[in-house]
Nucleic acid binder design. Sequence first.
DNA 1: GGCATTTCTTACAAAAAAGTACGTACCGAA
DNA 2: TTCGGTACGTACTTTTTTGTAAGAAATGCC
Lengths: 137, 137
Amino acid sequence: MTKKRQAYYTCSMEAALNVIGGKWKLTILNRLLTGPKRYGELHRSVKGITEKMLTQQLRELEEDQVIARTIYPVVPPRVEYAFTQSGEKLSDVFKALEIWGSNFQHRINPISGNADHDKSCYVLNEEAQPDQLIHNP
Amino acid sequence: MTKKRQAYYTCSMEAALNVIGGKWKLTILNRLLTGPKRYGELHRSVKGITEKMLTQQLRELEEDQVIARTIYPVVPPRVEYAFTQSGEKLSDVFKALEIWGSNFQHRINPISGNADHDKSCYVLNEEAQPDQLIHNP
DNA sequence: GGCATTTCTTACAAAAAAGTACGTACCGAA
DNA sequence: TTCGGTACGTACTTTTTTGTAAGAAATGCC
């Protein structure tokens, strides 16, 4: 999402989605939930992402003040990314998303457990119980 | 988002984002928060959206069982869209998004009030107070 | 000097999403 | 018989996003 990155929205939710949207943003932020991470760690952790994409998404998140970038003046370079105060507040959104998404998954695909669930993904402690199947009347 | 619409995800959040993501989804769902809406109503309400996009997004939301489509066999046709049970649960996510997005907006652009705020947007009753500005140390 | 390590850039190509423009069906009313 | 209103569908173009591949800087170590 090299998105327009406009500063004005007609709706707060759209603003939020612009920050969170994009193919890798949630996954990256997810990794940061367990604490600050180095560029390389993120790169290994978010599997499939290219360096270009990682850098780009991190820049955007930084621009949106969701994460902060700390450069240690060493060689080879060491750069760490961590949530800002504002970014940490996103955890509420994450929790809601996680709960709903979990239910959604169970509904769409009730058989498969979490067989191929990404272990490095943030998961709620509380068991998010799948709700019953909804049948179209 | 004619997205891949894959059924398996490694992360519930990604699943959720796939349902919610896309340029118009949130806006459309937002409108449905105040009750079932007809196709035409949505078209007028979600300003800027084309009929093709509206139809497409509605189809995807329906496919994901977030909304339900009711056809009344009359002429001219009357079609209504409404949240499913599952879709209604998204309101938690909306609330979290709305709160966070609102704070985000105030932080990014603290001066402008809600001058050009879309009146047909769902807004929380409770005042979402902007948090203080965060300065990069 | 040449190499390794880490964190990025940049130019270019491919894929995905969104937009444009126009067409269709239905049936009652004029 | 043509027209109006509603809810779409479809072919094609444009824009946006993502991916590929390569390079670059800084410095300690062999």
